Computed example of a mutant assay.
Amino acid sequence: MIAKNIKGKSFKGCVQYVMNETAELLEAEGVWADNAKEMIRSFAMQRSGRKEIKRPVGHIPISFAPEDSHRLTCNFMLQLAKEYMEEMGIKNTQYIIVRHHNTDNDHLHIVYNRIDNNLKLISVNHDYKRNIKVCKKLKDKYNLTYGKGKSNVKREKLDNPDRAKYYIYDAIKSVLPNCKTPTDLRFALQELNIEVEYKHKRTIREIEGVSFRYDNISFKGSQVDRKFSFGNLQKEFDKNIELLEERTQEQKEKQLSKVEQQAEDKLKLPVIGGVELTSEQWHTLKEGGFVYLENIRKKDGSGLFSSYVFLNEERNKAFFSKKNPDVFVKFGRYEMCIRDKILIENGYVTKAKVKWYGGEFAYPYL
């Protein structure tokens, strides 16, 4: 388990980088999680309360040894990420935890707002040393594999130029799985304050070499590590393109299967409380809406009733409401939709729609 603490200026660049084609959102706290654009907007709203802070973005890539891959379920990776954040003092703030599936090297990304929910700045003092201690603690606690070679070098004891070289090494290793072209690598490393310069052949514009500069210290790619010569980097770009094409094809096949299943579902319309749904009603419910049904039979057979009906997020259980499920009511410290209140009361975790400051809405998991 290796983690890297990065501070940045732009939530837009960081979130767009993390939410790539292979991203799987494991958890979101305090942000609208429907898409990357809404996430960026959520982070920016809270960040606007402390405009004087120049680097409000916290970004933590965490990678794991191949030997541990058989244990790395999404639930276990999420648990490790949250324990890591707790140990590092990243609390009471917005964050997303994202797993990437674009490489054999299992890894995830944490993006958090250094401006917490009380508009206080989350300290990053001595985070380099704290990060090493926390990773060791978690590896020992869960018997995770210790890295070999460069991954096992004690960075905190290094001085320049080795300190800069290992910073570049860690940065390239963290971003390379998401890069398909030399330009992708350049932009990704710019976010980490690393400059990239490509050397071109004299007669043609083909790239033949690469160098990296950090803290006014420059290294050729092969000086950082032999696998970071441009020839080897190009092999990684090609491999990433191939993996993306494979996953794109898989997604197309899954989508086709989904369409076929939807067509089959139209032939089997469900019944709720003895009331057979129309295709329009079933479509509304599956899309997250609600319908009003009359003459619903009670479970104990004692009579009939009429009610608004909606489904849970898994679309496998119906719930009933005397009032419009999208009407807002006070529940605890939130003002939320009736449907979310009913789901929570029935033991479900849901992304509730709640009224927020300034007439906006938030979608926390409750």
Rank of each mutant, 00 (worst) to 15 (best):
L189I: 13
L144Q: 03
I122D: 04
E360H: 09
K12M: 02
Y308P: 02
E67A: 14
K120R: 10
F230T: 02
Y348W: 09
E245I: 12
Y292K: 15
D340Y: 10
V134F: 03
K137W: 00
V15F: 02
A188G: 09
S257E: 14
N125M: 01
A36N: 08
N232E: 13
I194Y: 08
H126F: 05
F187N: 08
G209L: 00
K355T: 05
D215N: 11
G58M: 13
F310G: 10
N216R: 12
E280D: 15
R130N: 05
A33Y: 12
D140L: 12
T103E: 07
M336E: 09
L311W: 07
R213S: 10
A3F: 04
L311S: 02
R297A: 14
K353T: 10
L121H: 00
E276F: 07
A362M: 11
K252I: 14
K341T: 10
G273P: 13
I204D: 07
P182K: 12
L233R: 01
K154H: 13
F305G: 01
V153M: 09
F212C: 03
G359H: 03
N240C: 09
Y146A: 07
L72D: 04
K266E: 15
V329S: 03
P66C: 10
Y348G: 02
K7V: 09
T278I: 03
N5A: 06
V31K: 03
P66H: 10
F228E: 01
N346S: 11
Y357K: 06
E87M: 11
E253K: 09
R247P: 02
K299P: 04
F64P: 07
G303N: 05
Q94Y: 07
D225L: 00
I342E: 03
K268T: 11
R339H: 03
H109N: 01
E191Q: 14
K136M: 09
H101Q: 07
A263S: 15
K148D: 14
V196H: 08
F361H: 07
E345D: 12
I168S: 12
D184W: 12
K298I: 00
Q16R: 15
W356K: 05
Y95T: 01
I272W: 13
T278F: 05
K82R: 13
K51D: 08
H59F: 15
L158Q: 08
K252P: 00
F64Q: 07
V309H: 07
G13A: 05
K355P: 00
F187C: 05
S174E: 13
D225Y: 04
E294M: 11
D170L: 07
S218F: 02
I122A: 04
G301V: 08
W282V: 01
D184A: 13
D215W: 06
E250D: 12
G221S: 04
G347V: 06
K137T: 09
K173F: 12
T203G: 00
K165Y: 06
E314W: 05
F310R: 06
D162T: 08
N178P: 01
D340W: 02
